[in-house]
Amino acid sequence: MTKTNAGNFFEDFKVGQVLDHATPRTVTEGDRALYQAFFGSRFSLQSSDEVARKAGYAQSPLDDMLVFHIVFGKTVPDISLNAVANLGYADCRFLKPVFPGDTLSATSEVIGLKQNSDGATGVVYVRSTGRNQRGETVLDYVRWVMVRKRDKAAPAPETDVSQLPAAVDAKALAAPSGTNFKEFDTIASGSPHLWDDYEAGEKIDHVDGVTIEEAEHMMATRLYQNTAKVHFNQFTEGQGRFGRRLIYGGHVISLARALSFNGLGNAALVAAINGGRHVAPCFAGNTVFAWSEVLAKEPIADRDDLGALRIRTIATRDLPCSDFPGALERGYAEGVILDLDYWVFMPRR
């Protein structure tokens, strides 16, 4: 009887199956420091206890995307250990702040299956939920991932793909309770531009580029306890489709979010992810750039201190974004690697 875990293959999944993921993770100030070292995020609310206290928090919350990656990492051994690629996200809401000392755990439910035409892989759709030590849901999201089959001859399951909302309704966004951003310090944040200053249709080139190094990508992915083989095992991936390890897609998301500070410096909190596509792979040595478009702006009910902006951020590899490359009539412009649609909370005047 084998005692090792080979991970689930496509034919092991069943719609309605619930997976309780191992290794609850207590997050610390060390996680914050490492996350800032990897991505250089400068959003003041996640950088300063004093800025956070002024807004009504007991201390500075952890970066929303760090929370996302840690919850995501819990799910990998059961869902995507044998993945070819993570494909996308939808219907993701950040529901409660997470602070150093909180413990995160995760469960997932399989909500859809679709075998690919090659018969060697299939797409698994899951809804994953992250909870803190009090059992409170801090994060809930859907993702879909292409997973290898153990046996190409295994019968294909009946295709069952749930309909997902095109976007999280602004009315469903969970503004942080007990907070007040009326006196938000724009000197400390480094940007004078608040919710009132942005308009739908506005495009922002975030200008800066960051080159990904092999070591930092692997350390960041280990930080989340993400064990997907495509990111770590050059022995197998060197013989695979790309001949080298893939950069974890979440690494690109965090780089794009960090780059967005230059132009969206007061986008204090990520409220939701409406949808996301990893359009093309990214590798060590690539330089990531990003630009964003404001898709919509919405007030928050009963809050005159915060508003919501719906942002679409496009990330590219080895391609500055001064001409805003993006979706074409068919496919995407060459060099586009990420298309992320999300809501942020931003202080109002």
Rank of each mutant, 00 (worst) to 15 (best):
K182G: 11
S162M: 13
S128A: 14
F94L: 08
G88A: 14
G122H: 03
S162P: 15
A85P: 07
V138D: 11
A172G: 02
R143E: 11
S105M: 07
E158R: 11
I111M: 03
V168F: 01
N86G: 12
E183I: 01
Y141D: 08
D151M: 05
R131T: 06
P176T: 10
K114I: 03
M146F: 01
R93N: 01
L173M: 01
G130C: 02
R148Q: 15
K96A: 15
A106E: 07
G101H: 14
A166L: 12
V126Q: 11
T159W: 09
A153W: 03
I187D: 15
G119Y: 04
K96I: 00
R127V: 04
V98F: 07
G130A: 10
M146G: 06
Y141R: 14
P165T: 08
R143K: 08
A172T: 00
P176R: 08
R150Y: 09
N180L: 00
G112E: 06
I187L: 15
N116E: 12
N116V: 10
N132Q: 13
F181Y: 13
R131N: 10
E109Q: 14
V110C: 09
F94K: 05
G88F: 06
V138P: 01
P97V: 13
A90R: 09
L164V: 13
A170F: 01
A85R: 09
L95S: 12
A166W: 03
Y141N: 05
K152N: 07
P97D: 14
E136D: 13
R127Y: 12
T121I: 10
K96Q: 15
G122T: 05
S105Y: 05
G88Y: 02
T159L: 08
A90K: 07
A167N: 12
Q115F: 12
N86M: 09
S128I: 07
C92F: 02
Q163D: 13
S177V: 15
A83D: 12
